[in-house]
Amino acid sequence: MADIVSEASTVPLTNSKKPRGRTNRLMIAMLALPTFYSLVFFIGPLIFLIALSLWKVENFRVVPAFTLENYISVGQQMFGNSNYSIAILQSLYVAATTAALCVALCGAFVLALVYTLPSRLHRLALLLAVAPFWTSYILRVFAWQILLAKRGIINTALSAMGIDWQLAVLNTQTATRIGLLHYSAPVIIVILFVTVKSIDRDLIEAARNLGATRWTTFRTVILPLSRVGIVLSFCFASIIAFGDVLSGSILGGGAGRSLVGSVPLFANVIMSDYSGSTNLPRVCVLAIIMVLILVFILMAGMKGSEAAQRSIS
């Protein structure tokens, strides 16, 4: 330590650049830990996922091998008994509809927040909107379960008020969507808030000055300038929904009904396959399929936001 100090003190005062010589050591010190950790414990598990999918199970133990057996058996069951293809379809359907709903509702929320509240309240409102995200997701899902149940809070409240109509959404994918919406809304609200806030207010004023109605201003100024944020948040919300297990299993009841049918989500299939068989190599194949779909969604999102960016500039 002492030699570092003495060396640094020879750096002339007029030199406004960083002290020379020790930069590399500091840089390597700062880089070593993150690099090591992400290689071993982030890239590691992902590579292991691929490796494991080629291994096999013998006497209930996973043993190293190089076999495509797992891929073949998953491929055969894609359309067979396990019906992975229908589960993937269900997941895509639920994820896409949830994401669309989420972007629409959160978009309206952000517009209402930014344009109807005085700006001194923006920060507080955003703070409150993000608050639920900090609380336990599994407990919120549990709360939705007792709210939406057949003899749950909402239904008993309705009959206490003398209303005959009853809500019957628990154990359907509608309930899954409610849980997912509640989970992803804070994230999407933040993304869209940053998007809308960064729109130059002068542009909106200019449009209004030139006689545009609020609706026209929204359609021709705010919406086009928010396109990147909208595409990104749609992409983000679909990724969250596609990978989530809790809403589907607790609110959707495992195999919740939707237009696709009473089929579980792909994520739930993966989990129940693991707890049913503990055949890790096979589960890895399913996980890889999921990763491929997610990469596809992500790439589509990137392409989409690039196109949106280009359409502005």
């Binding site: 414990f41 590691g44 598990p45 992902l46 292991f48 996922l49 490796a51 494991l52 996973v62 990724i239 596609f242 990978g243 989530d244 297990v245 994520a267 993966i270 989990m271 693991y274 890790l280 589960v283 890895c284 996980a287 999921m290 990763v291 997610l294 992500l298």
Partner: peptide, 17 residues
């Protein structure tokens, strides 16, 4: 960006090894 489900399976594989 990677669902915890995927990471969970990967970690289980790596850590059990």
């Amino acid at each position: 960006l990677i669902p915890p489900l995927i990471l969970g399976i990967g970690f289980l594989g790596l850590l059990s090894r």
